[in-house]
Design a protein around this nucleic acid. Structure first.
Lengths: 80, 80
DNA sequence: CTCTATTTGTACGTATGTATG
DNA sequence: TCATACATACGTACAAATAGA
């Protein structure tokens, strides 16, 4: 099967860090620019990953401040 | 407060057309290019709207063919 | 089978708006 | 006022899959 899209990989990576507790509820994620640099991807990829995690309830973006791990974590959406 | 983002408006619009039955399950949505033209927006806006509807289970995109209304419609995700 | 057109999907870049500190 | 950071939006290019000639 074809490798997942970069944005999906990044979203998986971040979700795993949340589920493992490495990123705790209430904690601030690295900024868009940081993730962009660290993973060598474009803003589009970062935004897409963050957007997915937001829609699934893993994180919450606060305009002008940062993206934070949700206080109440959701159940995983898919069974892949 | 500022009007909703264009992509959110478009997503709402399409979801309403699905819920009303105007777009029936299995039916093909207008192409990205069509929606782009009809609503006078960019591809980004259309893609974002479609992506949201996909993640929420309203539609399913088939590579190279089109975007189709899901056979089994989900419950609304939000309570706005 | 090949070629082409259509369409979705991924990805990059950039500009601007909005909110916070 | 200024810097930082998320959010929206435009444009563009190319890959991948499908369908039709």
């Amino acid at each position: 099967m074809p490798a997942k899209a970069k944005w999906a990989q990044l979203a998986d990576h971040l979700r795993e860090r949340i589920e493992s507790g490495e990123l705790a509820p209430g904690e601030k994620l690295p900024s868009t620019a940081q993730l962009k640099e660290e993973h060598g991807v474009s803003q589009t990829v970062v935004r897409q990953a963050i957007f997915l995690l937001q829609t699934q309830g893993w994180v919450e973006g606060v305009h002008g401040v940062g993206v934070f791990v949700a206080e109440e974590l959701p159940q995983r959406q898919d069974g892949s």
